[in-house]
Amino acid sequence: MTTPLISITDVRKTYGRGPNRFDALRGVSLDIHAGESLAIIGKSGSGKSTLMHLLALLDAPTSGRIELEGTDTSRLRGRALNRTRNKTFGFVFQQFFLTANTSVLDNVILPLKIAGVGRSDRKRKGLAALAQLDMQDKARNRAIDLSGGQKQRTVIARALVNNPRIIFADEPTGNLDSATGAVVEDILFALNREHGITLIVVTHDEDLAARCDRRIHIRDGVIVPEEVAA
């Protein structure tokens, strides 16, 4: 059997101490394989966003082990950790997190700038990513002037610009109307299906979750079986 792309074992995450202690995750174990699509479902406060942040190496667990292709990620520090995140992951968030008065292209190439890619290569790769989303004609537009759907396409282009192996999508259609949200969903699943990008979606949306190869339910910081979650 192939080594999982991401494997977590008995991961726990605690915030605060004493009477203010909060156990966000209470012993989660999970394997995620390359090329699959996975939905993480749960109510607000269930621990699903905490789990995503740990999977994406944006935070470290209080205890437990997180492996990326068999490598213990606790050994990654400083530049090595930043480089791994930058090269391996792309992020699509509900809130967009675009710099409003900056051009669409400048928003898209930000991960390349962080990675130290030269200016001409940044522009070439940024325009190529926008072309994948049919947004190349908006490259010079300010982000603030885009529609909600165009903003989310820009965010997806930014997520793609470094050729990531994994895309994390946190409520990717939450700020969009149903028709626009359906288009964005189609784009994400096409990237998963046609390019083999592993897709990890955090969502309240059962219809979106149902499109994934697999889904897990988080409740009170633990993974619960489907029949318990229902």
Rank of each mutant, 00 (worst) to 15 (best):
R165W: 03
L191T: 01
T154Q: 01
V161L: 07
A80S: 15
S7T: 01
M1Q: 14
R219W: 13
T203R: 08
F22L: 15
R215V: 09
A60H: 14
S46R: 07
V202E: 02
S120E: 15
G78Q: 06
T99W: 14
A24W: 04
L112Y: 08
Q136T: 13
S29H: 05
R65V: 12
L208R: 11
R211H: 14
L38G: 04
G78K: 11
R215M: 11
E206H: 13
K87I: 05
G42P: 12
L51E: 08
G16C: 05
V161A: 00
L25S: 07
D137T: 15
P111M: 09
I32T: 03
L51D: 00
I66H: 06
N82H: 02
D207G: 13
N141C: 14
P164D: 04
L5R: 07
V183E: 12
F93D: 06
R85T: 04
N163E: 15
V92T: 09
A169H: 01
L176E: 09
R83F: 08
D207P: 02
E227R: 12
G42V: 13
Q152R: 08
T71N: 13
I200G: 04
F97D: 13
H204N: 10
L55R: 11
H204F: 02
N162G: 07
N163G: 12
L160H: 00
I187G: 02
A80R: 14
R17D: 12
M135F: 03
F189G: 00
T3M: 10
V202A: 04
L130W: 04
I6Q: 10
L133P: 03
P4K: 07
F89Q: 11
I144R: 15
L55D: 08
